[in-house]
Every structure is written in structure tokens, then in C-alpha cells.
């Protein structure tokens, strides 16, 4: 069994959170509140030491880079979001942020749409039977799924059959995603169980 007090804190916190599986209880509530409190405290500390101190406080007040007054004022304006009377002041820095995010629109279109379309058009049929099957699945799968979401034609006859094939492929992909989700959740449980059994109790190595 571990003699490290922090391992004990981690183990007891884990068990307190797990008690929720039995039912809602004060132990779970306590652990939840402690977690939220510590996370916020940690967030404030790291933000100060990694961001605000080296990138704002030191350059502004020690190196006198006065231009940094602009982001400082904008940050303060953002805090007016909590005021019902002066909340409009937060719209200015928000507008700046939203404006900057516009920079990402062409980049996102290029990355997530144009490059994907290009890759689908240029799919390779060379290299044997399996690559051919893979290429066909990609090509026909993409087209049939697109037809499934095309509502200008009634889904009847050949269009209906292709759309149905597309919907079947979508169901398969949802199933794969769900399978991955189950795997992820089990992995998280494995992480905690291994921590309790190995790091805390020391019954497995």
C-alpha cells in the first residue's frame, strides 16, 4: 500500500466520485465541489504565471511596452459581461475575437472541405484488390451519403435506393463511433482501476 499522501488523496477522491454510482450522496458532492474549486484555483495560478505575468505584467510595467495597454483594457472590458448595466462594453473585445476567428474560415474550408474533396476525387485504385475495394467504398460511400442528404429530389426509385445505401453506411459509421465511445469509457475506468490497484493498494505490479 502506498505511503505517498498524495496517492491517498487521489484514491480517496476517486472512491468518493465512484460513490455516485450507488446514488447521489454528500461524499460525491464534496468531491465534485473540491474538484471544481481546485481546478479554478489551478487555472488562475497557471494563467498568471504562464501568461499574464510574462506576457503582460513584465512587458508593460517593467519594460514599458505601452501598446499592451490595449489588450489590458480590452480584457477588463470583457469582465463587464457580468454587469447588466455596462454589459455592452464587453461587445467590443468580443467583436475583435469574432473578427479574428474569421481568419480561420478560409483555412477551415481549405482543410476540411477542399482537401477532402480533392482526396476523394484522387482516390487511388492501384495496388491490388483490397485498395480497389477501399477506393470503391470511399467513392460510392461519399456519393451515396451526399445523395441521402440531398432533398431536392424525392427519395424514390434509383435515387431512393442509393440514399438508402448511404443511410446504411451512416448507420455503420454511427455504430463504429459508438463502439469507440464504449472503448473510451472503459479505458477511463481501466485508468482509475489500475491507479487504485497498483499505485494505491499495490496489489498488482
Amino acid at each position: 500500500m502506498s505511503t505517498n499522501p498524495w496517492i491517498w488523496v487521489g484514491a480517496i477522491s476517486t472512491i468518493m466520485i465512484f460513490t455516485y454510482l450507488w446514488k447521489e450522496n454528500p461524499l460525491y458532492r464534496l468531491a465534485e465541489h473540491v474538484f471544481v474549486g481546485i481546478s479554478v484555483g489551478y487555472l488562475i495560478c497557471v494563467t498568471w504565471y504562464n501568461v499574464l505575468h510574462p506576457k503582460l505584467y513584465v512587458p508593460l510595467f517593467h519594460e514599458h511596452q505601452w501598446i499592451l495597454i490595449v489588450p489590458l483594457v480590452m480584457s477588463i472590458m470583457m469582465l463587464f459581461r457580468f454587469s447588466s448595466k455596462h454589459g455592452w462594453l464587453s461587445f467590443w473585445p468580443l467583436a475583435f475575437l469574432i473578427g479574428f476567428s474569421g481568419y480561420g474560415i478560409p483555412a477551415s474550408i481549405d482543410t476540411n472541405m477542399l482537401k477532402q474533396i480533392q482526396a476523394t476525387i484522387n482516390v487511388s485504385f492501384a495496388g491490388g484488390i483490397i485498395p480497389i475495394i477501399t477506393a470503391l467504398v470511399i467513392l460510392l460511400g461519399t456519393l451515396s451519403c451526399l445523395i441521402y442528404f440531398y432533398f431536392s429530389f424525392p427519395h424514390k426509385g434509383a435515387v431512393g435506393k442509393i440514399a438508402k445505401f448511404g443511410s446504411m453506411l451512416l448507420m455503420i459509421s454511427f455504430g463504429a463511433s459508438f463502439g469507440y465511445t464504449v472503448m473510451a469509457r472503459i479505458s477511463l475506468l481501466i485508468g482509475r482501476v489500475l491507479f487504485l490497484l497498483r499505485d494505491w493498494l499495490g496489489v498488482v505490479h
Binding site: Q116, A119, Y180, M183, I190
Partner: peptide, 26 residues
């Protein structure tokens, strides 16, 4: 990536934008 989001990243492999993908604990 976590297993939950692994399926979302496969298209980037086919397009060559990613050279490899590690999905979940497996």
C-alpha cells in the same frame, strides 16, 4: 486522440494531412 473522437480523424489520413493516427488506449 481519444477513442471517442478517433473516427472523426480518419478522413485526414486518406487526404495525407495526417501521417499517422493513434486512437485510444488500443
Amino acid at each position: 486522440v481519444t477513442a471517442v473522437s478517433a473516427a472523426d480523424y480518419y478522413p485526414y489520413l486518406q487526404s495525407g494531412q495526417m501521417k499517422g493516427l493513434l486512437g485510444g488506449m488500443k
